[in-house]
Every structure is written in structure tokens, then in C-alpha cells.
Design a protein around this nucleic acid. Sequence first.
DNA 1: AATAAGGCTTCCAGTCACTGGAAGGTCAAG
DNA 2: CTTGACCTTCCAGTGACTGGAAGCCTTATT
Lengths: 135, 135
Amino acid sequence: MNISQAAQRTGLPAKTIRYYEDIGLVTPSRDTNGYRVFADQELHKLTFLARSRALGFSIEDCRALLALYEDQSRASSDVKRIAAQHLKEIEAKIADLRAMRDTLSELVRACSGDDRPDCPILKGIEHAGGPARRS
Amino acid sequence: MNISQAAQRTGLPAKTIRYYEDIGLVTPSRDTNGYRVFADQELHKLTFLARSRALGFSIEDCRALLALYEDQSRASSDVKRIAAQHLKEIEAKIADLRAMRDTLSELVRACSGDDRPDCPILKGIEHAGGPARRS
DNA sequence: AATAAGGCTTCCAGTCACTGGAAGGTCAAG
DNA sequence: CTTGACCTTCCAGTGACTGGAAGCCTTATT
């Protein structure tokens, strides 16, 4: 199977698949003409990668998960640790975004959005509490 | 006022302030020794930038908002359009993250996290629905 | 046999918003 | 007069791709 088929099957752009090979996540064999050939195992890996990426795992997390996926003697605790940590980060991001949304939606609500220069949004940004600190 | 004072006042790292000058968001004057000098107006701008960045606006949005902020004859509708669009994107991100969280927390919950290799998280990634499509 | 279209290859550059670090000038205190 | 804390510029790296150029390979049509 060529790269464009693999791309279609996995939902990953061909460019991304080449990139994954570059950074050592997959190692497709090569045809005599130099074309990449994707067999079942590599296709499985790509699918696994596509799905873990869709769950928001970083590439390095994906690399670790893939290694555990392929290691029949893994401990599920190793997997769980990675996933639980990632879950924590997602929760934190959601909380950050919700705070932004709450502030922003209030400002947008208060703004008349007409031709006049008076704007509660700009005032809100100008007069917001002290410098926000990112975790 | 030197850059480190400006950094302290605005909560922005000095590196970031230099970067903001680089890309033309602020234009501090210079002392005879070449040091940047931040007067009130530039400090106001930096504060405005820090706060709009904290609300998640992109640098280019910040640039536009800053221009409107300084334009006494602006129309509040211009501001509102930018903010409403950004709000929409934040809502979308929240929805994406919540979907990830829901899936992930279920997988984490189901995983015993012990020494055995059996792992519902890996199985969940392996057997998840078709390739996720990002908007 | 020539050609055109499409797929494949590699490699380089750009994205976004910084961040780290090196090399070196400036300043205030002891 | 030296030490240490500032400040300067410039270059490179981050994460995870993405776009594009230049060129080889394959297939179909003329």
C-alpha cells in the first residue's frame, strides 16, 4: 500500500505520515522504486497514532503509548499514568478556557456593536484585574 | 523606566516585550546608552496587550484591538466582531476538549492501573471510532 | 515513441508566540 | 578597578505540522 492509500485509511495527511517516519514513529519498508510501502503493522500504528493524537496526546506521549501498545509485557499502570496526567492537563485547559469565555462573553454581551466609539470590550481589557498569571 | 521595571509592572517577561517591539506592537524610545525607555503610553499598551493575550486573543487580533483602542473614532462594532469571533473559537475549543475529556476519563476510570498488561486505555485507542476529523 | 497527468521522492522554509543562550556593552557599589 | 547585575543584539529551538520547489516514477493517451 502506498502513502496516499495509507493516508486515506488512517485519516492522516500524507505529509504527516512522512513526518512521523522522520521522527521515528513508523518505519514503512520501501519498494524497489523508493516508494514507501505500508503493511498491516505500520497501518495499525498509524491508526493508533491518529487516534491518540485525536485524544490530544503529545507526540512524545504517543511515542510512549505506542511502545507500551507494542510491549506485551507492559504494566497497565504505565499507560494509566500517562493518560491520567494528560487528563489533568485537559481539565486545566478547559478551566482556563472557561474563564476566558466567561469574561469574554460578558464583554461581548455588554457591547452594543454599533457605529459609536464607546466600547465596553476595550474598557474591560483596559481595566481588567492585575496581570494574569499563567500556570 | 527600563525593561525590567516594565516587565514587572505588566507581568510580561522582558523577552516578550522585546519581541513585541520586534513585531511592531510597541515602540519604546531609547536612552543615550541604547536602553529602552518605557513611558506611560507604552506601558499602557503593554498592559493592554498582556490582558488581551490573557483572554486568548492572537497577536494579530491584539494588533487590531490595540489599533482600535488607540483610534478615538473607532466603531464598537469592529471591536465586537473580533471579540465575538474569538469567543466562538473558544467555545469550539472547549467543546473539543470536553469530548476528549469525556472519552479519556472513561478510559482512565476503566483501567485498573496495576502490573498486568491488560489495558482498557490501549484497547480504547485501538478500537475507537473511525479517524477523528478536526474542524 | 513522445507526452501529459498524477503520484511519489527529498529538502528547505514557514507557521505561532515565544524562549534560551551566547557574546558583549553599561552601570552602581565596594 | 573589579564584581555583579543590568542591558543590548543576534541566532537557534520549540511542537507538530504544512506548503512548495525540483525532480523521479508510472500510467494512459496520442
